[in-house]
Amino acid sequence: MVIEHLLKWMRTARVAERVAAASALARTFNDRDLSFEDRCAAEAALTLLLDDPSPKVRAAIADALSMSRRAPLQIVSALAADQPDVAAMIIGRSPLLTDADLVERVCSGDPAIQLLVARRPLVSLQVSAAIAEVAEVCACVALVGNSGGKVAAISFRRMIERHGDNADLRDAILKRPDLPSDCRHMLLVRVGEAFKTSPLLLKLVGPQRAERITREACAKASLTLIDGARPDELGALVEHLRLSGELSASFVIRAIAHGKIDFFGAVMIALSGQTESRVRTLLARGNDVAVSALMRAAGLAEGIHRVILTALKIWREVANGKRVAGAQEVSWTMLKEVGGQGAEGELAGLLKSIHIEALRDNARGHALAIAAA
């Protein structure tokens, strides 16, 4: 009887009246006390209203049912497939849409739909993986900025690989507290690539110097990333640096000059095949012969063993409270090991640059402390 009455009424009712009726009818599904018979009748009536020629009527239904867990699934599915302004409320809010439903809509290729999915209150790892793999950059930015979006490490990597040249995405990703350290390094490399090809920089200093400036800046920034990496992330960071070709002997020397002993240990574990406990024991109290054998097994050239051993001894004394020293003192002692300021060669040049950087950093820190006093 209700459906018959509704059919007759729809033929003559104005759009505004149909919108109000549709909204009220849809909201009845949130009423826990609604009887089974009344719920069935309301469901049948809403099914008829899905065929209403006015999108305003269907939008009113979508708005009323968008956050309901009691809504009829077939009606929610139909609304999700409606025109964008109707479907938006369902896709963006409905708890009845499964991960499979959302992934299907992400893969449809419509940027507006992808953006709606990325902005949902909760986004699962499966859905975020689909967004990272196929979505436009606007959806990726929205996902990363969504506090309710769960993002796996591999999804961060895919977004960086696909859209890492987009500044908005880089900024959003860097603000994520759960961003793995190797992904931070990937972003750093992308920034470096953009920097060294900057027309302004190339015009000011030329391509060769731009390459050198960028390389040194990335190396310094990578050291900062090591400080921010959790102990359980160091192995992944080492592997990332190795696969990207950036785990060079010069970077290892720079790291140990700055006291990154845990990172150096992770490098030795990855490259030597020795166990973690064995490497930690050797770095903590192993003699020069044993540590040199470890570095040889890791593939480090004999020519750099001496300076690394020198630095390691100093950092051991610092750790044991027997000495106060920093990168400035350690790099100077390493430089003296190869002949001091007058020494020539690639290793000496590297150690000089590390020492000069440490001097500048200390002077800058001292000046800032004076200014703040």
Rank of each mutant, 00 (worst) to 15 (best):
85 D>C: 13
173 I>S: 01
75 I>D: 01
139 A>N: 02
330 V>P: 00
116 L>R: 09
259 G>D: 00
89 M>N: 03
40 C>S: 14
127 V>T: 03
142 A>N: 02
251 F>G: 01
111 P>W: 11
137 V>E: 05
323 R>L: 13
149 G>S: 05
249 A>Y: 12
142 A>V: 04
117 V>C: 08
179 L>H: 04
35 S>T: 15
175 K>E: 15
46 L>M: 10
334 M>W: 00
300 L>E: 00
92 G>F: 03
276 E>I: 07
251 F>S: 08
130 A>Q: 00
266 A>C: 07
70 R>Q: 10
368 L>M: 14
103 V>P: 08
327 A>Q: 14
150 K>A: 15
13 A>R: 09
257 A>P: 00
181 S>E: 12
244 S>Q: 11
49 L>R: 00
363 A>S: 10
115 L>M: 14
325 A>Q: 13
372 A>T: 15
370 I>V: 14
144 V>R: 02
230 R>K: 08
193 E>I: 14
367 A>K: 15
150 K>G: 12
116 L>N: 02
72 P>Y: 01
31 D>Y: 06
20 A>T: 11
253 I>M: 02
371 A>I: 15
92 G>S: 07
118 A>M: 04
74 Q>T: 09
223 L>K: 01
238 V>F: 06
109 G>N: 01
252 V>K: 03
108 S>H: 06
285 R>H: 12
321 G>D: 09
349 G>Q: 12
339 G>R: 09
283 L>T: 04
297 A>W: 15
53 P>G: 13
35 S>E: 10
9 W>T: 12
72 P>R: 01
25 L>P: 02
58 R>N: 04
12 T>H: 10
136 E>Y: 06
341 Q>D: 13
227 D>E: 10
212 R>D: 11
123 V>S: 03
283 L>E: 05
21 A>G: 11
90 I>L: 04
232 D>E: 15
3 I>F: 06
206 G>D: 11
269 I>G: 00
313 K>Y: 15
187 L>S: 04
30 N>L: 09
37 E>A: 13
134 V>W: 06
96 L>N: 03
248 S>E: 05
73 L>W: 10
34 L>D: 03
120 R>Q: 03
119 R>G: 02
200 L>E: 08
312 L>R: 14
234 L>T: 05
4 E>A: 11
344 E>Y: 10
312 L>Q: 11
132 A>P: 00
309 L>C: 07
265 G>K: 01
104 E>S: 13
252 V>F: 08
140 C>E: 08
